[in-house]
Nucleic acid binder design. Structure first.
Length: 638
DNA sequence: ATAGGGTTAG
């Protein structure tokens, strides 16, 4: 065995440590620190440098540069560390100053800025970023944000005075800042200022500014005019369409991007996935998942959570669970998606079980976790559990009850017939109750035959929201159960003179790679003739099996014959009939609706699943109906 | 140095 000479070994291990300690420290830090270091990583690295004798005054700025943005109002120790790094740095360089500005929480950078021994044009970038980040973090802390807006324009003025405003990075930071403020005019002014010093980041910042305030037409025009677009440009616009409730456009752009051979990054994957979830169409969601698979991307926590949400909102709760169980690491978002998903599919017991596991694994629930859990209890009729979790939320976790939580509780209680307890809850709320809560009470009155209370609540609601058709419909049907026909007529008349807010119902399904959308009595579809023939066949078989249309839910002032005719061509039935034509036997027929299923369509669909041994999965305005063998996962309550 | 992202009752 041969031995190296000690000197040679040493020089190979640390060839340049003697030559340039600062450069070595920098190199070592690069190897030591993860890509996005946390405070403790930097502290550990500092310790390593100290042990090696490399924690010199010249090396400290690099530690400063590696620090993450520290949280506002955090422990003072958090920011005394960056300050001491700065003070012990030998060169009071602009580099060290700038990274100090970056590490410290708002408003310290603003206070320190005038006193920094060295500044350069870059310093404005750091300062503006600090302001922008603060605005983004605390978008509801209105008081401090208006101050930040003012301070931002002040920094802008300082930059102009210092001759730094023409710097590309400073300009980009300014565009971003004004975008974050929602000050589109100022943003645009900086963007258009001569000389036109711009790069793709400038364009993307303006794009994001338009998206942030919902000016999608401007965003799109800008995007279309861009000569250089990168991944960020695409994901910004795709995310904008998702945010604006136009998932079809978002997904079309995502496909377009992929078809052009451009790389889908994590942001565009996550936003497109959320678009597919919003749309509810499984094939669209699977396409996005397929892009992840083909790119051989590792399923990160973010992508995993988005997948879970997409699969549950597209009606495949089993696929959602599969993805969730396979995730090596999960964050609160992933858990929340899974819990809420189980709840919306009527799997309340699974949701509650998962919540308990979540807590056992040491996670802290958020307000959204409780929306999921309470919703699960409500959908499954777990009254005691619901009361228990509602108390747990504030008493153990200190989470304030929000409208959504009250909504779940009112639904839970009134559904179980505990209408008075639900009313007491509403009346004891510390926030102004949403009229929808009273709407829940009203439908419970209908369900439980509480005529007098129903009449009081119904009239109150009509007074509160005269354009809301649903209130008239419910009130009239309550009068109808009490056989007060004169009152029924009055309410109907009132509705036709005032009510307007009823949106047209539609049903969607996808087949053969296309999306088909049906309206009531729709004749626009290319295969309309076949669809109506199929509907006729289904109707006859169902009639043989004893199905009788129930028109009590139709409140139009028309005869029974017409009502039956109207019900027979509800969009959902057209979609089901089309499903029989195009969906492969053995596969479920998947339908997405904008409104709630009407009572008779629900009965009809259930019966179809029994008579034809066909599975139907309907996503309506607020839940899923898995229908099979004549039974529905919603337990006939929606 | 600067731009983009997910979960929420009826």
């Amino acid at each position: 065995m041969q031995f190296e000479k000690p000197a040679a070994a040493a020089s190979r291990r640390a060839p340049t440590f003697q030559a340039n300690p600062a450069a070595d420290a920098r190199q070592l830090l690069g190897a030591l620190l993860p890509r996005r270091p946390a405070l403790r990583h930097v502290l550990q690295a500092h310790a390593r440098l100290a042990v090696l004798g490399l924690a010199t005054a010249r090396a400290l700025p690099y530690l400063l540069a590696a620090l993450p943005r520290l949280p506002p109002g955090g422990a003072e120790a958090c920011y005394s560390y960056p300050l001491s790094l700065f003070c012990h740095s030998s060169a009071a360089s602009a580099f060290a100053s700038n990274h100090l500005l970056r590490a410290l929480p708002h408003p310290l950078p603003l206070r320190l800025f005038p006193r920094l021994p060295r500044r350069n044009p870059h310093s404005f970038t750091f300062l503006l970023a600090s302001l922008s980040n603060h605005l983004l973090d605390a978008d509801h802390a209105v008081g401090s944000s208006s101050a930040s807006r003012f301070l931002g324009s002040h920094v802008h003025a300082l930059a102009v005075k210092a001759g730094a405003a023409g710097d590309l990075y400073v300009r980009n930071a300014l565009v971003h800042f004004y975008g974050v403020c929602g000050n589109v005019e100022a943003m645009r002014r900086v963007f258009d200022e001569l000389p036109l010093v711009r790069d793709v980041v400038t364009w993307n910042a303006v794009l994001a500014g338009y998206v942030r305030v919902g000016m999608m037409a401007n965003a799109r025009e800008l995007f279309d005019g861009m000569t250089v677009r990168d991944e960020v440009s695409w994901s910004t616009v795709i995310g904008g369409y998702v945010k604006e409730g136009e998932p079809e456009v978002a997904l079309r752009m995502f496909r377009n991007m992929v078809m052009q051979g451009l790389r889908a990054n994590e942001a565009s994957i996550v936003t497109a996935m959320s678009g597919a979830a919003q749309l509810g169409l499984l094939e669209q969601g699977k396409f996005v998942h397929e892009v992840v698979r083909r790119a051989k991307m590792t399923v990160s926590v973010n992508v995993g959570a988005a997948l879970v949400d997409m699969y549950s909102k597209c009606g495949s709760i089993a696929a959602a669970r599969e993805v969730f169980d396979a995730m090596p690491r999960r964050d609160v978002f992933a858990w929340n998606s899974m819990i809420c998903g189980l709840a919306s599919h009527g799997l309340g017991n699974d949701a509650v079980e998962l919540f308990e596991k979540f807590v056992t694994e040491g996670f802290s629930p958020t307000s959204i976790t409780f929306v999921g859990v309470l919703n699960a209890c409500s959908r499954t009729g777990l009254v005691d559990e619901g009361r228990w979790y509602f108390r747990l939320m504030s008493e153990k976790y200190g989470i304030d009850s929000e409208m959504e939580h009250y909504g779940c509780m009112v639904d839970l209680l009134s559904r179980a017939g505990l209408v008075q307890e639900a009313i007491d809850l509403i009346e004891g709320m510390h926030i102004v109750p949403d009229p929808v809560l009273w709407g829940t009470i009203l439908s419970a009155c209908k369900r439980h035959g509480l005529v007098d209370l129903g009449i009081t609540v119904g009239n109150k609601l009509i007074e509160l929201e005269p354009a809301h058709d649903g209130h008239y419909v419910l009130l009239a049907s309550i009068y109808a159960t009490a056989k007060k026909w004169d009152e029924v007529r009055k309410v109907r008349k009132l509705m036709s003179s005032r009510g307007t807010s009823k949106s047209a119902g539609w049903s969607m399904m996808e087949a053969r790679g296309t999306v088909h959308k049906f309206l009531v009595g729709d004749m626009d579809h290319k295969e309309s003739v076949q669809i109506y023939n199929m509907l006729g066949i289904i109707d006859r078989r169902l009639a043989e099996a004893g199905y009788v249309p129930n028109v009590s839910s139709v409140l139009h002032d028309i005869g029974d014959e017409e009502k039956i005719h109207a019900i027979k061509v509800h969009s959902e039935r057209l979609a089901i009939a089309y499903g029989f034509i195009v969906v492969e036997a053995g596969s479920p027929i998947r339908i997405v609706k904008n409104l709630s299923v009407c009572g008779d369509c629900h009965e009809f669909s259930k019966m179809v699943t029994k008579v034809f041994s066909r599975e139907i999965i309907v996503r309506d305005g607020s839940r899923f109906h898995h229908m099979k063998d004549g039974k529905c996962s919603c337990h006939d309550y929606w």
